[in-house]
């Protein structure tokens, strides 16, 4: 049901763009107003969200330690899983962000039987989620970078190289980008596991499917433009460059499918700061990962530390003095002083 809602909303959005640009005569809205607004919402919303997180202090250093601590000199320690300095913490973060290292640890728990029939819980390495996530994210990144050729003139060399490398297989015409396939493969698995695994289906809500269908919609509309509709790239570039120069002109030759693509991207941009997609920013601020495990070594300051006093020794002794004296425990105040 949740999957259906997600799909439905994305289809409705695509249709809205088609109708709006086709018969509706709202090309100006979809081509100019919405893109500018979406970019503005994305930039401002993203910044506000990150600032909102940053505003809350980090009262304690609570890294999740994923390996041996640094203690005695002769015990080798897990520098990057249990860092004690900033350098190693940065390395931990880089590995986390660039290689999804925690996700790489993933296992799946299976209730099975030993060969002699006794029940056993087994834990098997499960790398498919990691693989799909890596494929999806890196393809996404490359695709975004490739798109920069529409927003730059002349196109910087690195982007041209990337374009060349990505179509190196030289099959199909226009040449096929490998990232597109990997992107869809990654997305396909992320969607399939939500639909196929009962546990994951159970935890998925409509927003989870919406994000996936929206991105799939963007990918498919892009692929449709390139390989099926074969839209007029020259006039599109004219248009995108005019947006970049803040003097928008919408050439007549642009096919409606382009506006579907553009509108879905705008929706993604505008939706981003309000959604779980903000994990992009959040992962950098996660206190279980981005802090060294060093509060035994250095003082960490909690800005709101309430300095709550313990039940004092004096009060404790007052409470138990008689029994303490009788038991021969040292006391600070003698019984006679008490009176």
């Amino acid at each position: 049901m949740n999957a259906f809602y997600g799909l439905f909303i994305v289809c409705a959005l695509a249709l809205a763009a088609l109708v709006g640009v086709g018969g509706g005569g709202m090309t100006g809205l979809f081509a100019v107003a919405i893109p500018y607004a979406a970019v503005a919402i994305f930039v401002v919303g993203f910044a506000l969200k990150v600032m909102c997180w940053a505003k809350s202090p980090v009262p304690f250093r609570i890294p999740t330690t994923g390996g041996q601590q640094k203690s005695l000199d002769w015990i080798p320690y897990a520098r990057y899983d249990n860092p004690v300095n900033s350098r190693d913490t940065v390395v931990r973060m880089i590995l986390e962000v660039l290689t999804f290292r925690s996700l790489f640890r993933n296992t799946t728990a299976v209730l099975g039987k030993t060969p002699d029939g006794k029940p056993q819980v087994g834990y098997f390495s499960e790398k498919w989620l990691w693989l799909a996530a890596i494929l999806f994210h890196y393809s996404f990144l490359l695709i975004v970078i490739r798109h920069m050729r529409f927003f730059t003139e002349p196109v910087p060399l690195p982007i041209q190289w990337l374009d060349w490398a990505d179509s190196i297989l030289q099959i199909y015409s226009p040449t096929l980008y490998q990232t597109n396939l990997l992107f869809l493969a990654g997305l396909g698995w992320l969607l399939a596991r939500r639909l196929l695994y009962p546990q994951i289906r159970y935890i998925s809500n409509a927003a989870d499917y919406f994000a996936l269908f929206l991105i799939i919609g963007i990918a498919l509309s892009g692929i449709y433009m390139r390989y099926v509709a074969k839209v007029d790239i020259v006039s599109i570039k004219q248009f995108t460059m005019s947006l970049v120069m803040f003097s928008p002109v919408v050439p007549k030759e642009i096919a409606p499918s382009f506006f579907v693509h553009l509108f879905l991207v705008c929706v993604l941009l505008a939706y981003f700061p309000f959604s779980k997609l903000m994990h992009l920013g959040g992962v950098f601020l996660s206190p279980t990962r981005n802090l060294p495990n060093d509060s035994r070594i250095h003082h960490h300051e909690n800005p709101w530390n309430p300095k709550i006093k313990p039940h004092s020794y004096e009060a404790y002794e007052d409470d138990f003095r008689e029994a303490m004296v009788e038991a021969g425990l040292p006391v600070v105040k003698q019984l006679e002083e008490e009176a």
Binding site: I203, S204, K276, H279, S286, P287
Partner: peptide
């Protein structure tokens, strides 16, 4: 605050 916002429900 961050943990309230960033979970993607990947189920890992």
């Amino acid at each position: 605050k961050v943990f309230m916002d960033v979970c993607v429900r990947c189920g890992a």
